[in-house]
């Protein structure tokens, strides 16, 4: 269980998250929608311990990310995929993927490499294991980013706008992989602007508005006229997204 309880986060004077509550059960796919600046990335960064909370609590399988001693355990259970990939530029694809398993999980190198190669194969990059990030296309880099997160065998996969730096063709190739992961029962917390895709793969959709989590509904209810759309902010957001 991944639990976000009454979390408040402010940067100096500006409150970015304001009493956010969210629970994700294993196997669930939850999408976070919200306009730019609503705090989506900040929420993800609070969950993986990159930002310190001002109030509230976040636990990953009962490990509190605010407690230094538990953060390491919490981080082992979640994997993050970044918008700008953030691959290690000086390491090959294979090294990018095996670094953390070898150093953190103490997986023996041959085993870690076998796992990495299997992951690469599943995303269609079996032949690029020895390439360096700079030698890959954006879509390929992001697929490596996904493999890197999955190599830690996380219980929860956190994805922050993982396709917004990609062109449509590359977006499609990455989304196909995410759909496959969802179908396999991977638990995902998914920040996106791809509403149609979110609708396809999510069990639930939550909506952030100015740091408040104003809607948390099963996917079909979220899009129903008497469900999420009854909220003016959501209706406005959806219609604006459609037009684009």
């Amino acid at each position: 269980m991944l639990k976000v309880e009454n979390v408040r986060k402010a940067f100096s004077e500006v409150t970015v998250l304001d009493g956010v509550d969210l629970t994700i059960a294993p196997g669930e796919v939850v999408s976070i929608l919200g306009s730019s600046g609503s705090g989506k990335s900040t929420l993800i960064r609070c969950i993986n311990g990159l930002e310190r909370l001002n109030a509230g609590r976040i636990t990953v399988d009962d490990f509190d990310v605010s407690k230094p001693k538990e953060l390491a355990e919490a981080r082992k259970r979640s994997g993050t995929v970044f918008q700008l990939f953030n691959l290690y530029p000086h390491m090959s694809v294979l090294q990018n993927i095996t670094l953390a398993p070898i150093e953190v999980l103490k997986t023996p190198r041959p085993e870690a490499e076998a796992i990495a190669r299997k992951l690469l194969e599943s995303v269609g990059l079996a032949d690029r294991a020895d390439a360096y990030p700079a030698q890959l296309s954006g879509g390929q880099r992001q697929r490596v980013g996904i493999c890197r997160a999955l190599a830690m065998q996380p219980r929860y996969l956190l994805l922050d706008e993982v396709t917004s730096a990609l062109d449509p063709e590359m977006t499609a190739e990455v989304l196909a992989i995410l759909a496959k992961l969802a179908a396999q029962g991977t638990t995902m917390l998914f920040v996106t602007h791809e509403i149609e895709f979110a609708r396809e793969i999510s069990d639930r959709i939550v909506f952030l508005d100015k740091g408040r989590l104003v809607v948390d509904l099963p996917t079909d209810r979220f899009f129903a006229a008497d469900g999420g759309r009854a909220q003016p902010r959501v209706a406005q957001f959806l219609s604006r997204m459609r037009k684009d």
Binding site: G49, L50, R75, T80, F82, N86, L99
Partner: peptide
Amino acid sequence: DQGIIDAAEVSGLSRRKIFTR
């Protein structure tokens, strides 16, 4: 790039490992 360090941090690498690796 700070993002690269973020990535290393969330993968659970210790501060020392992040620095040396």
